[in-house]
């Protein structure tokens, strides 16, 4: 027995310097998608409400997110007297890091040949891919919880408790809804799951799982209509009540980063990742573009649903999560497991 405990095997790894370059590129791609999602959110929501949305800064208002971020970053850092200093400062960073960390395993394509070097178009291909994502999404609860608690304000604390309860209860259904996909694909690795969708995207056999995942993703990313943690129209602002300036920007960006990641996971698990339907097989350099376009389309769906639906009551949210989604997800996983065993 080896002295090193192996928690996960890595499917494919490059030289260390390639990994560093890859990490930087993936980080940049992530942080390009975040303002894009922010901009899309406001523009698309505007069009759906028959107005233009921001259109003053830059061409068609495209620089509005930059202007917003700049405004927030140049604000004075403010801290309530009752807050717990260190945690208050570090909580938004936890949110941000957890969001960025989950982005590392999203596959944008298979291994490609770049200047004679085999490079995988993903941060790292671990054999526990989807568990890695869930680990980071579970950790992000700490960002919200600590932020709410360390603010030393009752509004923040109540908001943090609400968000913790919501995130934890929907994570169960979210995890279970993906079990069906994992069973069908027979692997936890995200690249493996994408490759298993070569014949048919998993949205067809796993439609129920997809719907559960979608609903849970709304709650997980704190997006309306399940933005009970923030509920800007009803509450003071949830866990981020006492935050302003750059720290608020970090929370805000983390929220949109979670949205992008949830969309990317949906693309990877249900929409065939970099695969195109109808046997279209483009050259390999198109793969990342395919993944990004699909991700943006799913983000558009999130925004579409945001403009459409009113916010449910908190008890309705909880009963939907525990009484409907959880049994459905369990049944879905069970039925999938039985079918897989029977057909193989």
């Amino acid at each position: 027995m080896s002295s090193v405990l192996t928690f996960a095997t890595v499917g494919f790894a490059e030289a260390w310097w390639i990994q560093i370059i890859k990490a930087v590129i993936i980080f940049l791609v992530g942080f390009t998608l975040v303002p894009l999602a922010l901009m899309l959110d406001r523009k698309l929501m505007g069009r759906m409400q028959m107005r233009y949305g921001p259109n003053r800064v830059g061409p068609f208002g495209a620089l509005q997110p930059m202007a917003d971020i700049g405004k927030l970053l140049f604000k004075q850092q403010f801290r309530p007297r009752t807050s717990v200093g260190f945690l208050f400062a570090v909580a938004p960073a936890i949110s941000m890091v957890c969001a960025a960390g989950a982005f590392a395993v999203i596959p944008f394509g298979n291994t490609v040949d770049i200047f004679g070097k085999e490079v995988g178009l993903y941060g790292i291909d671990v054999s526990i891919g989807i568990l890695f994502v869930f680990a980071f999404s579970a950790l992000s609860v700490y960002g919200l919880m600590l932020g709410g608690w360390a603010s030393g304000s009752k509004y923040s604390f109540l908001g943090a408790m609400r968000s913790a309860a919501q995130l934890i209860s929907y994570e169960v259904s979210m995890g279970l809804s993906l079990v069906g996909v994992v069973i069908t694909a027979g692997t936890l690795s995200l690249t493996g799951i994408v490759e298993a969708q070569a014949g048919m995207w998993f949205i067809v056999p796993q439609l129920v799982g997809f719907l559960i995942f979608l609903l849970a993703a709304f709650a997980e990313t704190n997006r309306p209509p399940f933005d009970l943690t923030e509920a800007d129209a009803e509450l003071v602002g949830g866990y981020s009540t006492e935050y302003g300036g750059g720290r608020f920007a970090a929370y805000y960006a983390a929220e949109y980063f979670h949205l992008v990641i949830a969309s990317a996971i949906a693309v990877t698990m249900f929409f065939g990742g970099w695969m195109l339907p109808f046997g279209i097989d483009p050259p390999q350099w198109v793969d990342p573009i395919v993944v990004i376009v699909k991700t943006v389309l799913v983000v558009c769906f999130f925004i579409w649903a945001r403009t459409t639906f009113p916010r449910p009551r908190y008890d309705q949210l909880m009963s939907l999560g525990w009484k409907i989604l959880l049994p459905l997800a369990t049944a879905n996983a069970l039925v999938t497991a039985i079918l897989v065993v029977v057909t193989h």
């Binding site: 698309l44 505007g46 069009r47 759906m48 028959m50 107005r51 233009y52 579409w304 649903a305 459409t308």
Partner: peptide, 14 residues
Amino acid sequence: LKTTFARMLERPVV
């Protein structure tokens, strides 16, 4: 969802 999507196809009124 259909209602909101139909609004997107119309011209903004602002």
